[in-house]
Write a protein that binds this DNA or RNA. Structure first.
Lengths: 346, 346
DNA sequence: GTTGTGCCTGACAACGATGTCATGGAACAT
DNA sequence: ATGTTCCATGACATCGTTGTCAGGCACAAC
């Protein structure tokens, strides 16, 4: 054998040595060809390419990034409430599209409202040496990532702003959205409004409530008299809360629900009581078939695709060395009128 | 300095050498502690743990897997139609849950019906040396992964069976589901049924149509006279096809739609024509709020969470060395009656 | 006192690639 | 003919870790 290296590819994957042996060149030359580096004659390049195809060779990124300057792995970590949540799915998709253009792959994982999991997932991604992180924070504080962040690990928070650390964030204008809902209902003449919301630990829920109530206050509605039902975490609890509210002595003529599942619960309660065409409803978050309901459901829509895209842009900028001060980017919400929010009080 | 190694952690991440230096031990001992290997005294273990926490050290999985026997990276690749598609999201979530227990992270990516992208994504994952792949095939043939598969890379196909390669697959009983829809409508007395379906290149769409038509044939309905509208790829085209069908001389009294978006289009057409309580409808795929429609929509539901779970189990079994012959696993669909499918012919 | 048996421990090579640098030859100038 | 420059190329160290193996120490047995 004239080959400098063992040429058998026993069973495992071929390595650069195998390709080099077959092409009759040194491994560094193979490396040059595989990475499109200059300084290889056309004839050699072709021989190497031929050998690599014949062996079905594929570059090992992990091994490469070990030595490469900057140590890029071309992968990032994405921590979402749940990958099965449509809102998260849209964000994920937008991120993927923006990053795929740069050859960056995405590790995605679900939090499930568990602060412990947040830390575990971050650790798991750090151990895989991702080039950056996009996180939906849920833990009380994100101070635990300060060491990594100060080591220049790019990091962008989405949906909620982080606590205990200064970092980029991309969020919806939740308070403004809540205020829009209030203004919209007030404009139809409603004075007896109610708020149904998620658990108060959730920052976005608090913001939506604040915006809603402040707008009512500005309009001269006594906010202390506005029924506020919180701590609702699923459709069923929202349905029950709505039923109770509507059965009271002085029921509201309009309801603002702070989130998808809560909106569903309210819709169900209204339908059960035959009040769906009588009581106004504005829900935060858009959803499929909202226009097919009877009446169509008026919503404050978020723009997950814009959030994802913006988060990707910020992350890439940081990866590319942007050292400007961290900032929070706000994506405006949008009121979509479909009928339920345009019902006037009796 | 009494340290054997340089102890400064300049700017980058600390490595085992830094921890070893601080703890006053060899790097191999640090490795033992970090990997919970036996053969380290309690006192040493504590010293190492202390040093690693002080430096905020984290094991580099990529570097480790380079040398580790078996070369496990504890990550897998998941190729889906789109991460923003709720059906895919459910599968993703079920997979994640099953794999997280083993510390396996998931790279997820979207195909977007692009056969080229399928190959590119697989290549991208292979380059990252994933321990396995879960794929929704879209390309005409999956023969291109044969080299990897025969090198023992675990691989499970979901939703559709692969072509040109023998590998595990987890699919819904599409034909049976189509037949169930037909039987359900026939039992209500319908004889004039119509089929609205997706593009015929899609295997699952063909299966659903086949099951539907075969069942009609068994019941003595002249299948050649059954209107079949195919190649529908979105809500709008389905809506138009349904309108056209319903406006014909001899309109169907029942419709079977082969997929989510098509069902939405049909629902819209029926509502526009005021026929939603007169014409029966059974749709393939369940969806949120189906029970809130007027009438509720009867569907043949798939079980994405079971598909995901089963795919994860098969993948883990292969990763653990299962060498039995590849098989196709079928997850049964389920008819959920909600009203639209129980409408009798006029 | 010698030998054996464990248990801890660390030196060293190796994993598959890339960065650095030296080398050899062709092409060109003198 | 000699010196200079440039290009293509490969030897070698190295990235951060794990596998192998040998050494050292304590303790028990002879």
């Amino acid at each position: 054998m004239s080959n400098r290296y063992q040429s058998e590819v026993a069973n495992g994957r071929p390595t650069m040595r195998h390709v080099a042996a077959l092409a009759g060149v040194g491994i560094k030359t193979v490396s040059r060809v595989m990475n499109d580096e200059p300084g290889v004659s056309e004839a050699t390049r072709r021989r190497v390419l031929g050998a690599s195809q014949q062996l079905n060779y594929q570059l090992d990124m992990a091994a490469g990034s070990l030595r490469r300057t900057g140590r890029r792995t071309l992968s990032i970590g994405l921590v979402l409430p749940s990958v099965s949540n449509p809102f998260s799915g849209e964000i994920h998709r937008a991120l993927e599209d923006a990053l795929a253009a740069r050859g960056i792959a995405v590790f995605a994982a679900s939090l499930d409202d568990d602060p412990q999991r947040e830390k575990a997932l971050v650790a798991a991604f750090l151990g895989r040496r991702v080039d950056g992180l996009v996180l939906t924070p849920i833990a009380k504080s994100q101070a635990y990532v300060i060491p990594e962040h100060s080591r220049d690990l790019p990091m962008v928070f989405i949906d909620r702003e982080p606590v205990g650390i200064e970092a980029d964030a991309v969020v919806t204008d939740n308070a403004v959205g809540g205020a829009k809902a209030a203004a919209h209902l007030l404009a139809r003449g409603h004075r007896k409004l109610a708020y149904l919301g998620d658990r108060t630990e959730i920052q976005t829920a608090r913001e939506r409530r604040r915006g809603f109530l402040e707008e009512l206050g500005r309009a001269g509605v006594a906010t202390s008299a506005v029924p506020v039902r919180e701590g609702l975490h699923d459709e069923e609890s929202a349905r029950l809360a709505a039923r109770e509210l509507l059965a009271s002595d002085d029921p509201p003529t309009a309801i603002f629900s702070s989130q998808n599942l809560i909106t569903f619960g309210v819709m169900r309660a209204l339908k059960e009581l035959g009040a769906n065409k009588r009581v106004a409803l504005v829900g935060f978050d858009d959803f499929t078939l909202a226009d097919m309901m009877e009446p169509g459901i008026t919503v404050i829509a978020q723009h997950p695709e814009r959030i994802g895209k913006l988060a990707a842009e910020r992350l890439l900028a940081r990866i590319d060395g942007d050292r400007t001060a961290p900032a929070t980017y706000v994506v405006p919400s949008e009121l979509i009128a479909r009928g339920s929010g345009e019902i006037a009080p009796a």
